[in-house]
């Protein structure tokens, strides 16, 4: 299992557009990808799961990937996070 931590810096938090990008990206990998925030864990391949967390600016989150392409999945997601969304 591989994991990375982020802090959301986008002023409007994770709304539909970035959520859409993240879910689309996660869907490209075979591995199970989860997002943890505030003690809850959701499937990152689920748009409703991601949106249901209501992550605002300053939220500290963890992305975990488990499976054959776990490292690729994390770096793919990392590229989206670093586009002004999180650090």
């Amino acid at each position: 299992m591989a994991e990375r931590n982020y802090k959301i810096i986008a002023e409007t938090g994770i709304h539909a557009r970035p959520a859409t990008q993240l879910v689309n990206k996660a869907g490209q990998y075979e591995s199970d990808v989860t997002l943890e925030y505030n003690g809850k864990s959701v499937n990152l391949k689920s748009i409703m799961g991601v949106m249901s967390l209501g992550m605002g600016q300053g939220a500290e989150i963890t992305i975990k990937a488990e499976g054959p392409d776990a490292d690729d999945a994390l770096s793919g997601i990392d590229s989206i996070m670093k586009e002004g969304l999180a650090e």
Binding site: A16, R17, T20, K45, S46, I47, M48, G49
Partner: peptide, 16 residues
Amino acid sequence: AEIFSAHILVLSDPEL
């Protein structure tokens, strides 16, 4: 048009 991209994604959502 963005909102409809999100709608399409809901239809592929495993949770749903």
